[in-house]
Simulated scan of single mutants.
Amino acid sequence: MVLSLSPLPSRLLAAGLLASTLTPAMAQTAAPTLPGRASSQGWQVCHAMASDPAAQLACFKSWASSQLPANSPEPTLSAVPANPATGQPATQVLLLPAMNTEAPNGQPIGCKNDKYSALSKFWELQRGSDCDTFGIRSYRPISLAVVGSNSVNLQPGSPSAGHTALAPLPYKRTETKIQLSVRSKIAKGFLKRGPEDEDDHDSLWFGYSQQSYWQLFTAGLSRPFRNTDHEPELIYIYPHQIPLSGGWNYRLSGLGLVHQSNGQSLPLSRSWNRVYLMGAAEKILGQDSSLTLQAKIWDRMHEKAGDDDNPGIENYVGRAEVSGNWQINKTHSLGLTLRHSLRQQARGSARLDWMMAPMATPDYTGLRYHVQLFTGYGDSLLDYNRKRAVLSVGLSLVDW
Score class of each variant (00 low, 15 high):
T133Q: 03
A118K: 15
K192I: 04
A350V: 05
W43N: 10
G246S: 04
S120T: 15
T331W: 15
G162H: 07
A305N: 15
A54F: 06
L373D: 01
Y236A: 00
I313L: 11
A165Q: 08
Q28I: 10
H259Y: 04
V398E: 10
K177C: 01
A305D: 14
E233Q: 14
Q344R: 15
L12N: 12
A350G: 08
L125A: 15
F217Q: 01
Q92C: 03
Q260H: 01
P53C: 02
R223C: 02
S203N: 12
Q345Y: 09
R137Q: 14
K387R: 14
L352C: 00
T29Q: 10
M356Q: 14
P232Q: 13
W123R: 14
G394Y: 03
L77R: 03
S4M: 06
T174H: 03
E198T: 13
W354Q: 02
T33C: 14
K172Q: 04
G16N: 14
E233N: 14
D308Q: 08
T337N: 07
Q345D: 07
P168K: 07
C46R: 13
N153D: 04
T133E: 07
L96Y: 07
L291E: 00
A48R: 05
A90W: 07
D114P: 13
A58D: 11
N315F: 11
K283S: 03
N227Q: 06
S129Y: 09
G256C: 01
G306C: 09
A219D: 12
T86R: 09
I235A: 09
S184D: 06
Q28C: 06
H332N: 10
Q126F: 14
G286K: 01
A346K: 15
N113W: 11
K330I: 08
I284G: 13
P232H: 12
Y171L: 01
Y316G: 00
S143W: 15
L397Q: 09
P358S: 07
A79P: 00
M26G: 13
V398T: 13
Q287Y: 05
G263W: 14
L266M: 07
H370R: 15
G335E: 01
S265A: 11
P170M: 01
I142K: 11
K115C: 00
L144R: 07
Y250F: 03
V2Q: 08
M355A: 04
Q44F: 10
H259C: 05
H259G: 13
N153G: 00
I242A: 02
D229Q: 11
S138M: 11
H47T: 15
Q264K: 14
P104Y: 05
N71I: 02
N310G: 05
Q211N: 14
L382D: 04
S289D: 05
S117R: 06
D383H: 03
A38W: 06
N83D: 10
E198P: 05
A187W: 12
Q67F: 06
R300I: 12
I284Q: 15
Q179H: 12
